[in-house]
């Protein structure tokens, strides 16, 4: 689990309610980190997309979130982790509008734009881990 702070907490995302809880958890973290309203909104929206992917495409998993401090900056880091089918073609999955299902195909590409750091690790047949970080301005 890369770089989540010691105070980070893990949340199970195994049903629709987990996606709602993920949004609430991330809102609390963003407020703790004193994000502006716009930064807060961007991070919660990204988290909502990634949590839904964990549930729908990954077959359920976890979100681990916490505050991080690096080189004098403060931010929020979220790790979405599942043991689902993985993503065979990452470039395709990151294309605006591309969906393997019935979605809008904006979750991965859109959430990448909404955060400062975006790391997608996936192994077909083994699972997917998406780590995102947003720094306070």
């Amino acid at each position: 689990m890369n770089g989540a702070s010691s105070a980070s907490q893990t949340l199970e995302i195994t049903a629709n309610a987990g996606v709602v809880q993920a949004r609430q958890r991330v809102r609390a973290l963003a407020q703790q980190c004193r994000f502006s309203l716009v930064e807060q909104t961007k991070l919660i929206t990204a988290a909502s997309e990634l949590a839904r992917n964990t549930l729908i495409h990954g077959g359920g998993g976890t979100m681990t979130g916490g505050l991080v401090e690096e080189r004098g900056r403060r931010g929020v880091r979220l790790v979405f982790d599942d043991r689902g089918p993985g993503i065979p073609d990452v470039d395709l999955a990151l294309t605006d509008g591309w969906t393997s299902g019935a979605g809008m195909g904006l979750g991965l590409s859109g959430s990448k734009r909404l955060v400062d750091e975006f790391l997608l690790e996936t192994v077909p047949g083994q699972g997917t881990t998406v780590t995102v970080t947003k720094w306070a301005r």
Partner: peptide
Amino acid sequence: MRPAVAITLVELGL
């Protein structure tokens, strides 16, 4: 629609 929501929607790509 809140301004922060509108800004975020555009960046999301919607």
